[in-house]
Write a protein that binds this DNA or RNA. Structure first.
Lengths: 114, 114
DNA sequence: CTACGCTGTGACAGCACTGTCAGAGTCAAG
DNA sequence: CTTGACTCTGACAGTGCTGTCACAGCGTAG
């Protein structure tokens, strides 16, 4: 499929899909005319990007974990450095969730919602 | 206290404390020489900013809820518009927590942590 | 062939946040 | 008075993300 369709299927703007590629998160084939061609794996990748990026991870953080654990490679084993980085990301995520929970509490109290 | 001490006490850079003021989140008094003077309430406000901003709320979102519910005004009642906005923020926070939880799950699975 | 919609690239701009630097005033200690 | 730490303002820069615009090529339908 070409970029417009991928955009419609994922809700990500064409602009951002090209940006993802520039940042090394997508590597679509090209037609002879230079048009990007995406496949279903790319749809899955974009959904994963949306998920992770929406959780506050930056694209550079997401990049190394994109080829992981997709259908073709369920037993993917990240290299030690990546695993360490993942653990760190996980810890940061936990901290952020705790902070979010605190914020939620504060907001709820402002609304007298207990 | 002056800005340097507030910075040390909160861990927020002097630069950002001035930025908070510019954005209307802080309103310190000034000495005759123009130096900003902060009090203990300001420390509490900055901590609140850190909490909310760290949870992804932007400063403009935080601004209207800062004078709320601080020691001097435990029975603060936000105006209807603000309450609506708070509810909206709360919903967004819940969504973000759900997303964070999903992301966490994904990351954990990549680490084979169940 | 023409028209229209899609795609390509590159540039410019904006937001929210953050750092740094320059030039000048303030103030307490020696 | 001099020194050194602190403060003031304003400007410039950079990051990460996002939109928009201009100009050009592609490709299909009429």
């Amino acid at each position: 499929m070409q970029i417009g369709q991928l955009s419609r299927e994922t809700g990500v703007s064409v602009r951002m899909l090209r940006y993802y590629e520039r940042e090394g998160l997508l590597r679509p084939d090209r037609t002879h005319a230079g048009y990007r061609r995406y496949n279903e794996d790319d749809v899955a990748i974009v959904r994963r990007i949306i998920l992770l990026n929406g959780a506050g991870l930056r694209l550079a953080t997401i990049r190394p974990l994109l080829p992981c654990d997709l259908p073709p490679d369920p037993d993917f084993e990240p290299c030690p450095a990546l695993k360490a980085s993942l653990r760190q990301t996980l810890t940061a995520l936990d901290q952020q969730m705790a902070q979010l929970s605190e914020s939620r509490k504060l907001l709820a109290s402002l609304l007298h919602l207990g």
